[in-house]
Amino acid sequence: MIIGMALSSPAQRRGTNKTKPVYSGYLFTYFTGNDKSKEQICFALSDDGYHFKALNGNQPVLRSTDISETGGVRDPHILRGADGKTFYMVATDMVSAKGWNSNRGLVLMRSSDLIHWTSTAINLQTKYAGQDSLLRVWAPQTTYDAQAKKYMIYFSTKYGHQPDKIVYVYANKDFTDLEGEPKQLFFNPEQAACIDGDIQQKDGKFYLFFKTEDRRPGIKIAVSERLTTGYKMQSNDYVQQTDKPVEGAGTFRLNDGSGYILMYDMYTSGRYQFTKTTDFKTFKAIDEDVSLDFHPRHGTVMPVTAEEMARLRSAW
Rank of each mutant, 00 (worst) to 15 (best):
I195M: 01
M233A: 13
A139G: 10
D293L: 07
G230Y: 11
W117K: 10
F52S: 01
L312Q: 14
T16Q: 11
D35S: 13
E190L: 11
D174L: 14
T19N: 05
T86G: 10
F283H: 02
V22K: 13
K220D: 02
Y168K: 00
S258Y: 07
K211C: 15
R311Y: 12
V95W: 00
S119A: 15
D265S: 07
Y168R: 00
T251K: 06
R311K: 14
F52T: 04
T142I: 15
A285V: 09
D93S: 09
M94I: 04
K18N: 13
Y231T: 00
P217L: 09
S68H: 01
K281F: 14
I221W: 05
T70M: 10
F43D: 01
D279L: 01
F175A: 07
G230D: 08
Y151N: 09
E288W: 15
D164M: 08
T251E: 07
H161T: 12
Q147H: 14
V90E: 05
L312I: 13
Y168G: 02
S102L: 08
Y260W: 15
T275R: 04
K38S: 09
V61W: 05
L262V: 13
R253H: 14
M309Q: 14
V73C: 05
T157Y: 02
I115R: 12
S8N: 14
S9Y: 14
T282F: 03
D145Y: 07
M1G: 12
T282R: 01
V22S: 08
S8D: 12
L108E: 04
A148S: 09
Y23L: 02
I67Q: 02
T19M: 06
I153T: 09
D287K: 07
M152V: 13
Q191V: 08
N56I: 01
A315Y: 08
E181C: 07
D145E: 05
I153P: 00
R63L: 12
Q141D: 15
Y151F: 15
G15R: 09
E39C: 00
G259M: 06
F87N: 03
M89F: 11
Y238Q: 01
Y151T: 13
A285Y: 02
T118A: 11
K165N: 11
G25H: 03
I3N: 10
K165E: 11
F52W: 03
Y159D: 05
Y159A: 03
